[in-house]
Amino acid sequence: MKLLAGKFALITGASQGLGRELALTYAREGVRGLALVARSKDLLQSLASEIYRIRPNLNVAIINADLGSSVEVERVAAVTLAACEGRLDILVNNASTIGPVPMPYLLDYPADDFHQVLNVNLIAPFLLIQNLLAAMIDHGGSIINVTSDAGRVGYPGWGAYGISKFGLEGLSQTWAAELAKTDVRINWIDPGNMNTAMHREAEPDEDPTAWSDPAAVTDIFVFLASDSGQHVRGERLEAQSKWRARLQKG
């Protein structure tokens, strides 16, 4: 039995990096359907083609959207609800923008960029959860927010990105508290350093080969989305630490 059999998942930021790996992994793990959101329609279509090679008849909704706009978030929610027929099991808020590169100090940060980063990294996850909760609450579901160590430590130059992740950690904690008596679980994962286009862009002088391949951290996302992870709620998890041993100990 596949770990995600019968479940429908929405993944934001699905066209590249971790989001793309998650889409492929969830398809392999037997999901009933996928709603995939990203700005690039071409990259999403190419991902969908790859998914169809694994699961030719899988219900895949491609949603080309910029999550920096709250109107776009409403469209994403509506198309997802139609595609999953009103029953969503997994929501992965993975989409992030790093903001302007090279990354300016806060003192130099353009206000419009600051707003845009908060809109994509913090407001969109808030609105997606708010819009889609009704499709999860009766039967239970798993919400996973992708955070970063920049959401716990104020690194110079990581400006709006880091602040948005501080916000996302607070958002996750508050949702977890408000939904404590329901069957909807919220957890947030820090995937650690990954060799992704966004990370390479943010730190062009670093050696990306020292960073993890996104495919190496998808197992925790499968675990949390699956029924095996249903006892885990309101937790911050680090994908590259010994999370499995800790969680299995309960």
Binding site: S70, V71, E74, A78, L81, A82, G86, R87, L133, A134, A135
Partner: peptide, 14 residues
């Protein structure tokens, strides 16, 4: 008023 004002919080079938 924007569309979001015209939604019931529990509505799941567009």
């Amino acid at each position: 008023w924007r569309l979001s004002y015209y939604q019931n919080v529990y509505a799941i079938q567009p």
